[in-house]
Simulated scan of single mutants.
Amino acid sequence: MTHAAYVFDAYGTLFDVHAAVRRHASEIGPQGPALSQLWRAKQLEYSWVRSLMGAYRDFWQLTEEALDFALASMPDVDRSVRATLLDAYFKLDCYTEVPGVLKALKARGAKVAILSNGSPAMLESAVRNAALDEIIDDIFSVDALRVFKTAPEVYDLVTTSYRAYPEAISFQSSNRWDIAGAAKFGFRPVWINRNQMPDEYPDLAPSLILPSLSGL
């Protein structure tokens, strides 16, 4: 089934959020995987808490603050890696299947877009670094609204721009909470369950579950 648009979450879906730490694993040492997991968890936690408080800071600021917390929690990791890790996060690798899948969807005549918590500068850098700038039609950032997913007005950025009903939009995310928000809004949500995580939010189910984007 072809949809009017295929819209993708960015971090964890198109771009590997753990690539920055993995790229510098030798400098970080054995705590690298735990550092990366904590960095990601705090990045998301800060976005949800600030949305609930109405105290917005853009996603890059939250990414920096989350890394500072993770480094402070792991004193054995040399803090001199901070600048290196932030630079690497600004230029994250995409997953290997991403370019081919996006090109194939675009060849079907569908719009291909990103809808992300990321700041515009972060997203443009990641897209350019992964050489996806000739494929992606539009980048929608929550920065335009100053509130993070899963606020329904974030998903409405797409339907308003494309003048489409929610059910005409196929929305892909690796984050189950994001899929729940998209389902509540009325998108056709596809959960890219890269890490074989157990399901959550049974009342807000995905339309489809895939291990990668390759099944689209």
Rank of each mutant, 00 (worst) to 15 (best):
residue 3 H to D: 03
residue 3 H to T: 06
residue 4 A to F: 01
residue 4 A to N: 02
residue 4 A to D: 04
residue 5 A to V: 11
residue 5 A to T: 07
residue 7 V to I: 14
residue 7 V to P: 11
residue 7 V to F: 06
residue 7 V to C: 12
residue 8 F to D: 03
residue 8 F to P: 09
residue 9 D to K: 09
residue 9 D to L: 11
residue 10 A to C: 08
residue 10 A to Y: 10
residue 10 A to M: 12
residue 11 Y to F: 14
residue 12 G to D: 05
residue 12 G to F: 07
residue 12 G to L: 05
residue 13 T to K: 07
residue 13 T to V: 13
residue 14 L to C: 11
residue 14 L to E: 04
residue 14 L to N: 01
residue 15 F to T: 03
residue 15 F to A: 02
residue 16 D to W: 08
residue 16 D to T: 05
residue 16 D to M: 05
residue 16 D to V: 03
residue 16 D to Y: 07
residue 16 D to F: 05
residue 16 D to I: 04
residue 17 V to M: 06
residue 18 H to G: 15
residue 18 H to K: 15
residue 19 A to E: 09
residue 19 A to S: 15
residue 19 A to T: 10
residue 20 A to K: 11
residue 20 A to C: 12
residue 20 A to Q: 10
residue 20 A to Y: 08
residue 21 V to F: 00
residue 21 V to R: 00
residue 22 R to C: 05
residue 22 R to I: 06
residue 22 R to N: 13
residue 22 R to S: 13
residue 23 R to F: 06
residue 23 R to E: 15
residue 24 H to N: 12
residue 24 H to I: 12
residue 24 H to W: 12
residue 24 H to A: 13
residue 25 A to R: 05
residue 25 A to I: 10
residue 25 A to S: 10
residue 26 S to R: 08
residue 26 S to C: 03
residue 26 S to H: 09
residue 26 S to I: 04
residue 26 S to A: 15
residue 27 E to P: 00
residue 27 E to H: 05
residue 27 E to T: 07
residue 27 E to S: 13
residue 28 I to Y: 08
residue 28 I to M: 08
residue 28 I to S: 12
residue 29 G to F: 14
residue 29 G to T: 10
residue 30 P to H: 00
residue 30 P to V: 01
residue 31 Q to G: 14
residue 31 Q to P: 01
residue 31 Q to W: 00
residue 31 Q to S: 14
residue 32 G to K: 01
residue 32 G to W: 04
residue 32 G to A: 13
residue 32 G to L: 02
residue 33 P to N: 08
residue 34 A to C: 03
residue 34 A to N: 12
residue 34 A to P: 03
residue 34 A to Y: 03
residue 35 L to A: 10
residue 37 Q to G: 08
residue 37 Q to V: 12
residue 38 L to Y: 06
residue 38 L to W: 07
residue 39 W to M: 11
residue 40 R to C: 12
residue 40 R to Y: 12
residue 40 R to F: 14
residue 40 R to G: 12
residue 40 R to K: 14
